[in-house]
Design a binder for these strands. Structure first.
Lengths: 133, 133, 133, 133
DNA sequence: GTGGTCTAGACCACC
DNA sequence: GTGGTCTAGACCACA
């Protein structure tokens, strides 16, 4: 179910990011209960302590609220989630541009590669639509 | 001079990527000698052992060639460099798309954000052109 | 109404201390009935099981007496309350002195800080007397 | 050597406070290296992971700086240490006054108890000076 | 050797 | 059952 982890980055950070994405996508809405430590551990196939660290960090950033004996809940403060959304999107953008820049791409060339990638992707999607394996 | 490292990812991998980028940009042309272990260590502000690991790994991938007593040189095999270029570009693309997808962005929305980002960036560039601090 | 709890210390212990303080202050006199499990739970904003544990512990120390079907009552044995009073006051004192000592304060410096704190506090009190918000 | 821990409070917090006290007392000066994870673990008689958590928290509060492969060092930013000093002293004061207040003591009575405690303590010190066991 | 992460399993406080 | 802390022992990246 869950994709594998990049071995070159702390697992707890990767889980944090995925959970944040899920929250921002709405898989877990504000006020919703997140899976318990053990459940999440099974889900991501890691030790429950690793999940504990993830939830602790998320709580420190006010993205989540832990209630002893009850569970861990997504914050209801939308402004926090909005800030998180912008921060995640911007850092993705930023990273893409700086790395492509280091590779020697100008803005125009990045755009060209981008459009081409989209084109390739949509074609692949169409193909699989016509010929679903 | 050199930007800081992400502490959440092995430094030797980050240095590898930056060196690859420099090679692909042409900062180090095929056949050129790379900086010595000590010099590169000073340049990146890390221990020379870390640089040694980087060069070893690059040699394993045939991107550079170590000549004992002479130094480390960029390969003259253009096909290797071309493959490296594609691999780096594609993984950047891939990463960007999957992460934006996890955030809930459709292809169209990604494109919109992308164009907006370019727009913002070019405006900022124009501003700093008129009023260079 | 009731102040929040320190999350880094068992809640049942904190409630115990507050109840003891209230008893020693005379909010609950010897022989008085304490609030029911449910009421106290509402008052302190915790689960009634937690209150049950508190009352059990207080009963073990003979500070209160549980009468089945009737409620929980403050002991009428004044000597127990007196001993409790001394123990609580001394441990507060002890803790203050050892911690200030660890911070590097000599007895004289503690006294100076203490007097200054009193001074600040009484001034603040006077201010709010003249200009009650 | 090191005093025992209060079982009713997380050990890592208690170690944090003691380390902070030692830093503020000057046992570890700004820029000094703290004991390694294992050494500190032996010193405090806890697992090295517990120390790791302590150092992590201290690093988050900029009281300490961790350098991979080198050690953990007290910050050289005196303003951070000064703020820490005030915060620790004030919370000790605050706690003492509120708890004594809950016990029913007026400011004057607190002062009286305080002076008496000092008196008792200095007498005990004198006794042990005359008659060191 | 030093910090950082992860696991497996345990105990506790709270609901 | 749920979160929080602790242990013992392991592996890795860095100096």
């Amino acid at each position: 179910m869950e994709p594998e982890f990049d071995p070159n980055q702390p697992i707890y950070l990767q889980i944090m990011q995925r959970l944040c994405s899920k929250i921002l996508r709405g898989d877990y809405a504000p006020g919703d209960k997140l899976p318990s430590l053990v459940d999440a551990g099974l889900q991501f196939n890691v030790n429950h302590n690793t999940i504990a660290r993830v939830y602790m960090e998320l709580a420190r950033q006010c993205i989540v609220e832990a209630k002893r004996g009850e569970g861990t809940f997504v914050t209801e403060d939308r402004s926090v989630l909005e800030a998180l959304h912008h921060s995640m999107r911007d850092s993705l953008m930023e990273n893409f541009f700086t790395e492509m820049g280091r590779l020697g791409y100008s803005i125009e060339e990045m755009n060209a590669s981008f459009q081409e990638y989209i084109h390739r992707k949509s074609q692949a999607a169409n193909l699989s639509k016509e010929d679903p394996s």
